[in-house]
Design a protein around this nucleic acid. Structure first.
Lengths: 131, 131
DNA sequence: AACATTTGTGTGCGTACTTACGGAAAGTAA
DNA sequence: TTACTTTCCGTAAGTACGCACACAAATGTT
């Protein structure tokens, strides 16, 4: 019921995706990749294969529940590979797929920019104080 | 509370930021920039200065409430500039600051990657069906 | 007089996310 | 026997998100 539903032919929308359209399936991927923990998980796995608990230590502040859910999302999108060894106690290793590594690269560029730009952004915060 | 609170000296953390640490202020900026609507707003404003309602039309599916909130976040971080003309009915224009243009560029690279990679990601979805 | 315009804020209400806690499995060490 | 390990899932509870709707303001059109 959006006001601007460019049909754009379903086939074309599936081939390329149009994020600005409300119904685009890209929105789901974007949601997973840019989710609160998705960004950090991708970056943590960019260099290393990690077990669940190591990943949890690497990503500060994430709960077990959310880490598991985030990993399931990314696995479902084909960005993360999950290898479970059938032993007790469980031993599960997470790594990035080739697709995941591409995503992680893009995400890291953004994260690096934020980290290095933080002083400039903090200046905006201070100015906002003086309103 | 976290198990790995590298103090890293507050000054250093403020200078550069360490996203993997739970308490890093970069996390807030990341939250705004990668928020559901933040990404799309930055991309919509990358090319044009837009009024509120034009922006709402450009970003499919966003409610007035959330668009206003998202714009306030980005304005507070110094990424978006808001110019309000004192007339009735109200006339407000939104555009990106130089800082915002840098962020938009990074975000667009990620969004473009998702859109063009959608076919490969969709393949992962289909495989997941056959579990 | 009644209505439309534009950019929001305030209110209610349902949905989604997020956390904290407890539990499961099969062995090993105390 | 009890505790401990690892990787989650189930549940309850709290927080945030998101939508629909009404409301505001000064001027112009019906």
């Amino acid at each position: 019921m959006g006001p601007d539903e460019h049909p754009a032919s379903l086939s074309q929308q599936l081939q390329r995706g149009n994020l600005m359209a409300a119904a685009c399936p890209s929105r789901d991927v974007l949601k997973h990749v840019t989710s609160r923990w998705g960004v950090l998980v991708l970056m943590a796995l960019e260099t290393d294969t990690l077990r669940f608990s190591a990943l949890r230590r690497a990503v500060g502040g994430v709960s077990e529940r959310m880490l598991a859910q985030t990993l399931q999302w990314l696995e479902g999108d084909g960005l993360v590979e999950r290898i479970a060894y059938d032993v007790v106690p469980p031993h599960v290793e997470y790594s990035l797929t080739p697709l995941g590594r591409e995503a992680a690269e893009k995400v890291r560029v953004l994260a690096d920019w934020i980290e290095t730009s933080l002083p400039r952004i903090a200046r905006a915060w201070e100015e906002r104080q003086r309103d």
